[in-house]
Design a protein around this nucleic acid. Sequence first.
DNA 1: CTGTATTGTGAATGTGCTTTCACAAACGAT
DNA 2: ATCGTTTGTGAAAGCACATTCACAATACAG
Lengths: 199, 199
Amino acid sequence: MSSEKLDTEVRQDQITQAALNLIASHGFRELSMVKIARKVGIVPSAIYRHFKNKEEVLDAALDQIQERLHDNVGIVCNETSEPLDRLKRLLIYHVKLIRESQGILRIVLSEDIYDGHSERRIKVYNIIKGYLDKIDKIVSQGQQEGKIRQDRDAATISLMFLSIIQQAAILWHISNGKFDVTRHAEKAWRIFNEYLEMK
Amino acid sequence: MSSEKLDTEVRQDQITQAALNLIASHGFRELSMVKIARKVGIVPSAIYRHFKNKEEVLDAALDQIQERLHDNVGIVCNETSEPLDRLKRLLIYHVKLIRESQGILRIVLSEDIYDGHSERRIKVYNIIKGYLDKIDKIVSQGQQEGKIRQDRDAATISLMFLSIIQQAAILWHISNGKFDVTRHAEKAWRIFNEYLEMK
DNA sequence: CTGTATTGTGAATGTGCTTTCACAAACGAT
DNA sequence: ATCGTTTGTGAAAGCACATTCACAATACAG
């Protein structure tokens, strides 16, 4: 009952995707090599042909998340050059990302992903920091252009911006979809936008 | 090598405290009956004299967290009757709570605490909702008194308020204390306060 | 002082997990 | 077609864990 033999590159991709989907749908706690293997259609030990260990699989999954976040920023920056529009669209994309791949961002927040190993912690911190930096750039540019009030810290504004969605996403998840993220995001954005525009 | 025999009530308290401290310092993932027992000074199986299983221990720990959150609200409401002052102080107490008992609030956010069992998920949701309701009351009252602008949803404002600290707390933790929560809380509060005061 | 309920102990069970390893099947270059 | 490399397999080792159970120590009521 042998599976088809595939290149390491292909398998690595499949394994990473499987891991991401499993985390998204059943949480980090439920993630096991057995389940990843089942989803890919191979046997657990076969994973070790393509990754050194579970750690490496997780790292690859984190890389994917980072990519998706950065992609979103790239997209909105291409779509419009208006700073406030960029932020608004980024908010929408972020919410969409959360809704589509359930927990993909809660992964970043999940306590358990660190598991004592501080390298992973640093990696996660850098992912968030990288994302925040990009938001920061949008804000700073908006301030220079006079489109966003200049009397407040760009970093603080950026973090507040991220906080809005993130916390809502958590509530959304815990409530089993009962809590309306999109609605909250809209309302919160109105408040935030109004503040940023103030002179 | 027998331990002193103590009443179930006392042991339940010790066990709950031990569990909370362990989660706070080493995360939810690391929590085990063995470690709880070691901290209390008894043998793992002895825990089962006082709790039916691990689930019950966790539930007791969650109850404790809820209590602390509600206590904070009670304290600030006794300290002052000015809505904005109440919020500001609550922010400070919240940050303090986070700083003191490391991860006590990340527990609420931790993916793994649900572990598939939806009862626990509901319980956590209710804890947050209860806390948010109390914040909501402060905001609503402030709006009625004309101390807080009335053209925005109290619920949205409350959630934004909570988000500010919560996300910062997460960053603080991930960065191993490098990120300055207190500083961010202060800056964010200034922004938030200014907005709420606007007519 | 005696008997009974309560609390603690150590060993054992069972489960699920990651990881290793010898071996087998498929592939690719020559 | 063949040989070496890559990928997949199944079994097993080894670990941590929650939980159970018979038994021992302790407290306490009468």
